[in-house]
């Protein structure tokens, strides 16, 4: 059931430090229930709509998804609320991975538990080295991010949660390890 970790290529979207869950998905959209398919898609269409207005649009007008499969962030990404709507909105919009300096604990946990996206951690401050729109290739298995210019940055090992991520989330992991029955 475990799949090989992917290689993700595409444009990056760069945000700053302390991007909280209200900026990722503002509270007025929390009336949407992520387990209802149509509302999952709608959540995606509002991803990062709470960023200050001087950011370029994350999702182009009249689109449901984003052209940026990789988000590059600074410290403490996803701080604030425990709303799982946050990693889900990003995942539903088409984000495959976030590469941040560090994460708030609940966001990281929710990203892993849902399997919506890979929360990777950078060794160096990528927000100062990359710009929104740059092309990059993220190799989750190798733990590297390579720019279009051919510069490769090492990422931190994903650590303790690796077994949960590679199993495909908390339910799959619990089934694999016999903690719940494998139906």
């Amino acid at each position: 059931m475990s799949e090989a970790p992917p290689v993700i290529s595409g444009k990056v979207y760069v945000v700053g430090d302390n991007i909280d869950t209200d900026q990722i998905i503002p509270a007025q959209y929390l009336n949407l229930v992520p387990t209802i398919a149509e509302e999952y898609r709608q959540l995606g269409s509002y991803a990062l709509i709470g960023l200050p207005d001087d950011y370029p649009p994350f999702i182009a007008e009249a689109e449901m998804g984003t052209a940026y499969p990789i988000v590059i962030a600074g410290r403490n990404f996803g701080c604030g609320s425990s709303r799982e709507h946050a990693p889900i909105a990003l995942g539903a919009a088409g984000v495959k991975a976030v590469v941040a300096d560090s994460y708030a604990r609940i966001f990281f946990r929710n990203a892993v538990a849902t399997g919506e996206l890979y929360p990777m951690e950078a060794e160096v401050r990528l927000v100062d080295l990359l710009q929104t729109g740059d092309e990059a290739t993220l190799d989750i298995g190798a733990g590297t991010l390579t720019t279009a210019a051919g510069v490769t940055y090492d990422l931190k090992p994903i650590g303790d949660v690796a077994p949960v991520v590679s199993a495909g989330g908390i339910f799959a992991y619990a089934r694999e390890t016999g903690m719940i029955s494998a139906t």
Partner: peptide, 17 residues
């Protein structure tokens, strides 16, 4: 605080990793 997925797990099992 936990997310919906973890909470769904607790709801069914009473446990969390």
């Amino acid at each position: 605080g936990i997310g919906n997925t973890d909470a769904g797990f607790v709801m069914g099992t009473g446990k969390l990793l």
